[in-house]
């Protein structure tokens, strides 16, 4: 028996909104420690890794570890019926072929339940190595969204370079070119939300497809901050930590010289 109850049900809704553009169906691996998901986009360019800790839920019970294969677009449709302040309960039997969603309004005056059929999904699992990244930038999640959306007007590929002057996002396309540089401002009186922290061991310059970054940026409603971790010739890690709940990480393969 699996049962998880979350007062801040909206978090589940936001997590699915942040995944469904990239992943159509995925296994939610449930165990006594929580819920994990790892899935690639259909082009196998990026990898999403979700972790939701059991302690992050108001109630969490999982008697047997198992994968719950779910179509994310169906799940997103069901979650449209969940209101902002609703309490969400997820339930599945050990040998069942469905997952149950229950949405309760805060005042307990409306209760909805939905059942979704589970799917058998053959998913490839990757071992993600612990990487000692050469540069880490932590900034406002909404500011990162803004940069990705604004720069995509000009081109498809962004060059991200971290140097002593800050982190520069550059795009060039048929219309022209654009650069946005964000500087470390931890020494000034910047308010917490707008802080930019740049931790650089050595300069890094890598190219990435903007459309994936724009999809990753859909996770911004989950939290205030995002971290970008870069090293030469390895995937970019874009990590959204969700306080007391878990994290949503995205890995994006760089563009490489032929």
């Amino acid at each position: 028996m699996f049962e998880a109850r979350l007062t801040k049900g909206e978090l589940i809704k936001k997590v699915i909104e942040a995944l469904k553009d990239l992943v159509t169906e995925a296994n939610f691996d449930i165990s006594a420690t929580g819920i994990q998901l790892q899935a690639m986009d259909s082009s196998h360019v990026s990898l999403c890794a979700l972790q939701m800790k059991a302690e992050g839920f108001d109630h969490f019970r999982c008697d047997r570890s198992m994968p719950l294969g779910i179509n994310l677009s169906s799940m997103s449709k069901v979650l449209k019926c969940c209101n902002k302040d609703d309490i969400v309960t997820l339930k599945a039997e050990d040998d069942g072929d469905s997952i149950n969603f229950m949405f309760e309004s805060k005042d307990q005056d409306k209760i909805s339940d939905f059942e979704l059929k589970l799917m058998d999904i053959d998913s490839e699992h990757f071992g993600i190595p612990d990487t000692d990244y050469k540069a880490t930038v932590t900034m406002s999640a909404s500011e990162f969204t803004r940069i990705c959306n604004d720069l995509s007007i000009l081109g498809e590929t962004v060059a991200i370079s971290v140097g002593k002057d800050g982190v520069r996002f550059s795009v060039s396309g048929e219309m022209g070119t654009g650069n946005m540089t964000v500087r470390d401002n931890t020494s000034s009186d910047t308010k917490e939300a707008d802080r930019v922290e740049i931790d650089m061991e050595e300069p890094v310059n890598l190219n990435f497809a903007l459309r994936y970054l724009k999809s990753f940026a859909k996770a911004a409603p989950l939290t205030d901050r995002v971290s970008l971790c870069l090293s030469r010739d390895v995937p970019l890690l874009v990590k959204y930590e969700i306080p007391e709940f878990g994290s949503l990480s995205y890995y994006l393969a760089p563009k490489i010289d032929d």
Binding site: M40, E124, F126, I128, P129, P235, Y251
Partner: peptide
């Protein structure tokens, strides 16, 4: 000229 690499190139299947 640049091309898009795949994520499996970097992570071992496990």
């Amino acid at each position: 000229k640049q091309s898009q690499s795949k994520i499996s190139r970097f992570f071992a299947a496990g």
